[in-house]
């Protein structure tokens, strides 16, 4: 493999890694506060792409504004899912909320099939995203510049929010000790809503970038990115935001580099991601950055 092709793959892997990180954070944050795997997260991601599509086609809004609207709508969707499907089960056994999460996932997917239709739709993105640039012999797609930049902005915002603000502090307090946090006067419901909004918002950003990269959207588009991001969160150590970022990168690298170096194994891409998961679970079950 020539050096320029290697760099091309590297840039691809970084870009994809950021995408997985954005999605994985939604899993890890919700797990942090509720000890619940939000299986509907991948479908919330899918809905975000459709929100962009329909705000553009129905209200003929420009792309940028449609994206903003879609992010807000997705945040509201995440908020409502928590209200309707998880909050009433707050004191129920863990397994009930887990079932509820899977239920929401199927509900959203089938809702999308019925309402949006099962046939893939093409996703509009600015011309710049699909343009190829040649830098020192390396061919780089526009989207591969945009993804890391946008991700860095949002991930920094997130770090600021979680580590520097009182809402973030409340979130961290809840994830450490739910009951004591309440006794400190923290409004648990509000903080959990906030967590879902942030996680869903990041998923929406991820969905827009994802759909710009693979410009077709359909009701099951969230399933595999969801599973991979979930794997990324587990590998990094579920509950840890830093872990989700690192796990996301790892999954991104495996996806791209495996295909690049061993093209004959390309079809087993996901198998390798899950092998990585199994290895981590065997040797460091709390994940790379997780707490024991």
């Amino acid at each position: 493999m020539s050096l320029s092709i290697f760099f091309q793959n590297l840039i691809n892997a970084i870009s994809l890694g950021f995408l997985f990180a954005l999605i994985a954070i939604g899993y890890t944050m919700v797990y942090g506060v509720l000890r619940l795997i939000n299986f509907a997260h991948g479908d919330i991601f899918m809905m975000a792409a459709f929100f962009v599509f329909y705000t553009m086609t129905i209200f003929s809004l420009p792309w940028g504004i449609a994206c903003l609207v879609a992010i807000v709508l997705t945040m509201l969707l995440g908020l409502s899912v928590e209200r309707v499907a998880y909050r009433p089960l707050r004191n129920a056994p863990r397994i009930s909320s887990l079932c509820s999460a899977i239920g929401v996932s199927f509900l959203l997917e089938n809702f999308a099939v019925v309402v949006f239709g099962g046939r893939p739709k093409s996703f509009y993105c600015p011309e710049f995203f699909t343009k190829t640039f040649i830098l020192g012999g390396v061919r780089v797609l526009g989207i591969n510049f945009v993804t890391p930049l946008v991700s860095i902005v949002f991930l920094s915002l997130l770090s600021y929010l979680v580590y520097r603000t009182k809402n973030g502090l409340a979130m961290r307090a809840i994830s450490k000790d739910f009951d004591t946090a309440r006794l400190m006067g923290i409004n648990i419901d509000r903080t959990i809503s906030f967590t879902f909004m942030i996680g869903s918002g990041l998923a929406a950003v991820g969905a827009i970038l994802w759909a710009s990269r693979y410009p077709q959207i359909w009701p099951f588009m969230g399933v595999f990115p969801g599973w991979r991001a979930f794997t990324a969160a587990i590998i990094g150590g579920i509950g840890s935001i830093r872990g989700a970022m690192v796990g996301g990168f790892l999954v991104g690298f495996i996806s791209i580099m495996l295909v690049a170096f061993l093209p004959e194994l390309a079809g087993y891409k996901d198998a390798f991601i899950f092998i990585a998961l199994i290895l981590v679970l065997l040797f460091k079950p709390e994940g790379l950055f997780g707490e024991e």
């Binding site: 502090l169 409340a170 006067g185």
Partner: peptide, 13 residues
């Protein structure tokens, strides 16, 4: 909150 700093513990409250 054992993993948070002393001052963060108070700030939460």
């Amino acid at each position: 909150f054992a993993n948070l700093s002393v001052i963060e513990n108070v700030m939460i409250a």
